[in-house]
């Protein structure tokens, strides 16, 4: 009797995930292999098209740049936040949670106001006399990267504050009492211990950027097409569902491969695991 208790309680949730996620997503992937032209034809046409290859490469580039910038900013900020006195720490965490809970549309829209032709950045630079005429900053790779960094830095900070707070204080104090300078302690004790957390943060940011839609749509438009926006366009504008399914399959495979690989790497590199 008790044997079934666990399954009975877990079955509705299991059923929901299997019926509404696993099966539909598998079906999408399977259809890419069952086209009349042969099992790999859609992939040949995906990777054979210069345009789609460019989109894939651009998406990887933008996601890598976003991840790298978010890692550096997020880690240094999280380090300061984790050492801040209690009241200040709460305020800083609130300041990071607030943007995180504010929707992606609102946060991307903010950059539309800032980077637009008549936006704040242009008007400030104009009034300072730094530029003669407004620059077009929207619909560039740079605009997408800035907005993506904005999107993911709070996530990185919060992930890393958790990780840094988990590092036992004794280790930092031991390092200091053995004569290490703060910078040496930071580089030789704190940083290595934070590596697994950095990897987790990097995976979250990379996969998030790689599969994003709203930000590249608003700030990149047609000019800076990424995998997400291309997939939407194929599915809903040109109604080429086979092509859209192929992009979906490529996204799933890359995302899951990165997650599996990096969690394994993170486990390997964890200096606390003896």
């Amino acid at each position: 009797m008790k044997r079934f208790a666990g399954w009975t309680l877990a079955s509705p949730a299991t059923l929901l995930v299997v019926v509404f996620l696993v099966l539909p997503v598998l079906a999408t992937i399977v259809t890419t292999f069952t086209t009349p032209a042969g099992p790999f034809a859609t992939y040949q046409s995906f990777f054979g098209s210069g345009f789609r290859r460019t989109v894939l490469m651009r998406t990887i580039q933008v996601s890598l740049a976003t991840t790298a910038i978010a890692l550096v900013i997020g880690f240094l900020t999280a380090y300061v936040v984790s050492r801040a006195p209690g009241w200040l720490k709460s305020i800083l965490i609130i300041a990071a949670v607030f943007p995180l809970l504010t929707g992606v549309v609102v946060r991307s829209f903010a950059w539309l106001i800032i980077l637009g032709k008549n936006g704040i950045l242009n008007s400030t630079l104009l009034s300072l006399g730094l530029i003669g005429e407004p620059m077009s900053m929207l619909y560039t790779q740079g605009a997408v990267i800035v907005a993506m960094v904005y999107l993911f830095v709070p996530l990185m900070i919060l992930t890393l504050v958790g990780v840094l707070e988990g590092i036992p204080d004794d280790l930092i104090q031991a390092s200091a009492s053995l004569g290490a300078k703060p910078s040496a302690t930071f580089l030789q004790v704190t940083l290595p211990l934070a590596v697994p957390g950095l990897i987790v943060g990097a995976v979250l940011v990379f996969t998030g950027s790689f599969t994003s839609y709203a930000t590249p749509q608003l700030l990149g438009g047609e000019q800076v097409m990424m995998m997400g926006t291309l997939m939407y366009q194929q599915a809903m504008v040109t109604f080429d569902w086979v092509a859209a399914s192929t992009i979906a399959a490529v996204m799933v495979v890359i995302t899951i491969a990165i997650v599996l690989l990096m969690t394994r790497v993170a486990r390997r590199l964890n200096p606390m695991a003896v």
């Binding site: 996620l21 539909p24 997503v25 999408t28 599969t211 997400g228 995302t255």
Partner: peptide
Amino acid sequence: LSTLFILPVLVPELVLGFSLLKN
């Protein structure tokens, strides 16, 4: 089973949305 319950985070939302529409 616990991995199954975090699948909605692992599978890109766009792919889930498109698959629900299509299938």
